[in-house]
C-alpha cells in the first residue's frame, strides 16, 4: 500500500531524513516512534506530499510521489491524515467540516455528504454535536471529529501525526479507542505516536527513528521483546519507566 524507498530530505545542509526505506502493507498498522527531532513527523508528511523530499521515492497504491506531474490533490483525497493540533476549520460547523471536502473534492451531493458525515459522527460518538463549532468541543472531541473528517473521504489508508500529544491526559483514551477500533476494522494505518500501549495493542510493526534514519523496523513482539539497537532500548527504557 505504502512503499517508502531510500527517501532523503534536507533543508540546506541539514539532513532531515536519510535513506529511509520501509513499507506498509494493506491492513497493516505501523507505529513510528522516536525522540523528537528524529524526523518521524516529516517522514509521515512525505507520504501524502505535504513535505517534499529530494531523493528516493514513495509509492502509495501504485502512485509514485516522485513522478513528474503527479496529481497531488487526487492522491491526498485518498489518504486520510490526522494532525497533532486537530486542524478542524474553526469557521465551519462540525457537519460542514465533515462535508465540505466530500462535496468540493469528491463531488458528492450535499445530502450524500451529510449522511456520510452523520454516520461517521455516530461512529466516533459525536452525532449530537453536528451543528456545533470546533471551539465548543473539547480537545478529545475535536480530534475524534478530525478522524471522522478524514474517514468521510473513504481513504485507502490513514496517517496519524502524533494524534494524542496535544491532548490532556484524560482525553487521550477516547481518541485511542477510536483508533483501536479503526485498526481492528482493518484500516491501513501509519501512526506517529509515543503511546506504546496503543502500539502493543494494535500495531503489527514498530519503526524506531533517530536523527532522520530508520534505526529499527521490527514486528511488534520483537520490538518490545528484544529491540536490537541501543538507541531504541534507551528510548524504550525512558518512555516506559513510569
Amino acid at each position: 500500500m505504502i512503499e517508502i524507498k531510500k527517501v532523503g530530505k534536507h533543508y540546506g545542509h541539514f539532513q532531515v531524513l536519510s535513506d529511509c526505506t520501509t513499507a506498509v502493507a494493506q491492513g497493516e498498522v505501523v507505529v513510528v516512534c522516536g525522540p523528537s527531532g528524529s524526523g518521524k513527523s516529516t517522514l509521515i508528511k512525505c507520504v501524502n506530499g505535504l513535505e517534499p523530499f529530494q531523493s528516493g521515492d514513495i509509492v502509495v497504491d501504485g502512485t509514485s510521489l516522485a513522478a513528474p506531474g503527479i496529481d497531488l490533490p487526487r492522491l491526498r483525497a485518498r489518504v486520510g491524515m490526522v494532525f497533532q493540533h486537530f486542524e478542524l476549520f474553526p469557521h465551519m460547523s462540525i457537519m460542514e467540516n465533515l462535508s465540505i471536502a466530500q462535496r468540493k473534492v469528491l463531488g458528492r451531493s450535499a445530502d450524500e455528504a451529510r449522511e456520510r458525515g452523520l454516520k461517521l459522527l455516530d461512529r466516533v460518538g459525536l452525532r449530537t454535536q453536528a451543528e456545533k463549532y470546533p471551539g465548543q468541543l473539547s480537545g478529545g472531541q475535536q480530534q475524534r471529529v478530525a478522524i471522522a473528517r478524514a474517514l468521510a473521504m473513504d481513504p485507502i489508508c490513514m496517517l496519524f501525526d502524533e494524534p494524542t500529544s496535544a491532548l490532556d491526559p484524560e482525553m487521550i483514551n477516547e481518541v485511542l479507542d477510536v483508533m483501536v477500533e479503526l485498526a481492528r476494522d482493518g484500516m491501513t494505518m501509519m501512526c506517529v505516536t509515543h503511546e506504546m500501549g496503543f502500539a502493543r495493542r494494535v500495531a503489527h510493526r514498530v519503526i524506531f527513528m533517530d536523527q532522520g534514519r530508520i534505526v529499527e523496523d521490527a514486528a511488534k513482539e520483537d520490538f518490545f521483546g528484544t529491540p536490537r539497537s541501543e538507541r531504541a532500548q534507551l528510548f524504550l527504557s525512558k518512555i516506559l519507566r513510569h
Binding site: R76, G80, F83, L88, F89, V105, L106, R149, A150
Partner: peptide, 10 residues
C-alpha cells in the same frame, strides 16, 4: 490549516 486543507485533497 493549510496542511489540513491540502491533506483533504483541496
Amino acid at each position: 490549516q493549510v496542511a489540513a486543507g491540502l491533506a483533504l485533497g483541496f
